[in-house]
Simulated scan of single mutants.
Amino acid sequence: MSGSENTVLDAVKGFFMHNGLFLLLGTLAFAGILWLYIMNKKGKVQTKIEPVKLTKIIKGSIIGITCIMLVCNVVTATTIYNDLGIKDYQESLNKESDLYDNYYVDAKTANIQFPEKKKNLIYIICESMEMTYTDKKNGGGFKENLIPELTKLAQENTDFTSKDDNQLNGGLTPGNTTWTIAGIAAQSMGIPLNIGNSEYNRNFEEQSQFLPSVKSLGDILKEEGYHNYFMCGSDGAFAGRKNYYEQHGDYKVLDYHQAIKDGIIDKDYYEWWGYEDDKLFKYAEKELGEISKQDEPFNFTMLTV
């Protein structure tokens, strides 16, 4: 989880900022009832209500509040479970498939041929981007199209839409391919990040080998004389991304820290996860201007946020 420390703190801080008033009022009300109960037990509170009856009222209030909180939590959890399709997601993780038995091609044994004049590759990975953001007319989930330019690009080029359908369906993602590093590995290795070892999953850091027996896109391109680059607007170490790209293709990693060194952002600049995509694209344009002057072919991979 290296590189995510600030984000975790921001999430905790944000929760208290948004819910501070309710938390304060609830705590004061609960503390007041508790105080009244204790004082009553000690006989220090004089009320017109009989002590035994007051004790019952206070106990009932505490039990009532606790029950209301439990019911709210259960209702919220059930709603989230159903609305987010968690059951379907969990089932998909354990679903057996013959997809890889029938279609997987091992890059180590495949006969991959390059043209004599090799083409450069600019590969943009869009974090958390999906067809849902387009409008319903085009197969999305919104009244207004939130990604009109990407919709146009998809319609004019190759995408996952079937030939007899004019709507953008998007691709189906198998289990263990849907979080950042799993998506990166799946896209550039052709396999899910299904390690089955929680300790290994937590330590995709410099000291661990990242799927050393699998040949990736970066490995293939490096063998063909390509210079590989990876750019992102956050700490490259997060989720083992830096580790992955350096081990598979000897990528030059241009992350948040490198952007500071290159003068793209000030040393104390930090916005949410690192820095915004508009700055990232300007940084990419600047770097590509220099990289493209080289004689050797290049692969420039970048990850938006």
Rank of each mutant, 00 (worst) to 15 (best):
K95P: 04
L150Y: 12
V253D: 05
G140Y: 05
Y226M: 00
S208K: 09
T158F: 13
I57M: 09
V71S: 02
K267T: 10
G236V: 00
V305P: 00
W35P: 00
P212Y: 06
F230I: 01
G171R: 08
I63V: 13
D219H: 05
E199G: 00
L36F: 14
I68Q: 01
L84T: 15
L288Y: 01
L93N: 06
Y81V: 02
Y37F: 15
K59N: 13
G170R: 10
S234Q: 10
W273R: 08
V305M: 13
A29N: 03
T180R: 08
G139W: 01
E276V: 11
V305G: 02
N94G: 11
I260P: 03
D83V: 10
T161I: 00
I181L: 07
N102F: 08
K59D: 10
Q90L: 15
K53D: 04
A259P: 08
N40M: 07
L280C: 07
N19T: 12
L23T: 03
I65V: 12
I147D: 04
T76S: 11
S234K: 08
L28A: 09
Y226R: 02
Y200M: 08
G26M: 07
Q155C: 01
Y283S: 05
E271F: 12
K95L: 11
Y269W: 03
F16Q: 09
E246K: 14
E116W: 03
A31Y: 08
K143E: 11
Y226W: 03
I181S: 09
L25G: 02
K87Q: 13
G240S: 06
E199V: 10
I191G: 00
K293Q: 14
S97W: 04
T151F: 02
V45F: 15
Q155I: 06
W273G: 05
L23N: 09
F204C: 00
I184R: 01
S234H: 10
T304L: 14
R241V: 14
G274Q: 03
Q247E: 07
K59S: 09
V12G: 00
L24A: 15
E223K: 07
M129H: 09
